[in-house]
Design a binder for these strands. Structure first.
Lengths: 196, 196
DNA sequence: CGATTTTTTGAATCATATCAACGTACGTGG
DNA sequence: CCACGTACGTTGATATGATTCAAAAAATCG
């Protein structure tokens, strides 16, 4: 259950066997069926979820009813509405499962206690969010400086597995373009592919 | 020189007078004249800069030569090309001064040593980047879900001082729209303002 | 298999970009 | 302190990329 988690943790900090055992106590395991919600708008986001298995998305729904996907999460990634988690204010986003999932949940109090009990874990969380920040900056840079097709190509190049694993209209939503536009630009790209 | 810095730090963690003294040693002071570069594309970003006074921007330049502003920084904020800083790979962005600046610079080795010497500072950096991440998510959400005028209005609402302090074409660049479009939508908004 | 979801395609429309010109403000050196 | 040159903001005309709406085709699910 925790194999993948500690694999990821140990990429950043080295935990002893004893520390790993201790660490487990702060997490709770949760399974989620496809389409189930982990978080709904208006609720406070109580947990940061480490994805052991499966895939999830976080998204907002506008007044008109259209969804905008803010984030995907797959095995080894972490997902939460961090603003709500930190401030305990109601979330403005939803999180649901794209596939059946196994998650490791950590609530705020446990996160604080864990960081105190095992200072290396504070370093882990720091490095983790630092990576997430850098990745988000890349996405933001793309959003303001690239055209629709360039954004799509960057996504395919950076995260090929995302494109394989989630429906195309969700990719469109994630990129901030309409599904029709994505369909059309994919058709165009198929014609003009480079064959190296 | 360090007043603002410790004011900001103490919003997140409480440092004793002795810790503050110790802390200072890891930072170096740097002044920058308007238009001077702190970082140029191709260089490794050696420092994270705390802005004690002045204003800066971080931006990329495309092959066609157009600038895209990724980030502004004012008094009390922090700026760096974090990807380059972490990985020591060449930066893809520029940082320059929009006004004469006073900065506190921290290099990577000093940051690591500082976090070891004063563990509270590790917590400070963690909370700091957590905030930055949440703020960037808000901007990203706006980028994929709002129209040009909604993005502008959100910016005005969230950071009124930015709009007052930087030239309009830089705001446009930051929002990912053309300066002409921003000029026009501002004109429209002037007509249809709400008068509360 | 039928039902639902997803993707594709077409046509019309809309938002924004682009290109060009003009007026204004700014600050810099003479 | 003035004059010049550069920056900046505005406006108009046109072009273009992307959206929207509608419908059909294709894929997926139970």
């Amino acid at each position: 259950m925790f194999d993948l988690f500690f694999e990821k943790v140990n990429e950043k900090v080295q935990l002893t066997a004893a520390e790993q055992e201790e660490c487990k106590q702060y997490y709770t395991v949760k399974k989620l069926r496809k389409r189930q919600f982990l978080l709904q708008e208006g609720e406070v986001c109580k947990y940061v979820a480490f994805v052991n298995k499966g895939a999830l998305r976080r998204y907002t729904v506008s007044e008109k009813g259209d969804e905008h996907i803010l984030q995907f999460a797959f095995e080894g990634w972490t997902i939460a509405d961090l603003y709500s988690f930190i401030t305990a204010e109601p979330s403005t986003s939803y999180i649901d499962a794209l596939e059946d999932c196994e998650l490791l949940l950590l609530n705020k109090q446990n996160q604080d206690e864990l960081m105190n009990a095992i200072p290396k874990m504070q370093r882990y969380f720091f490095l983790n969010i630092q990576n997430a920040y850098v990745a988000l900056q890349r996405r933001m840079t793309a959003a303001i400086s690239l055209t629709a097709d360039e954004k799509y190509l960057q996504l395919v190049k950076t995260y090929p597995h995302i494109v394989q694993r989630v429906p195309q209209h969700m990719i469109a939503s994630y990129l901030g373009i309409s599904p029709e536009t994505l369909s059309r630009l994919r058709k165009q790209l198929k014609g003009g592919e480079q064959e190296s």
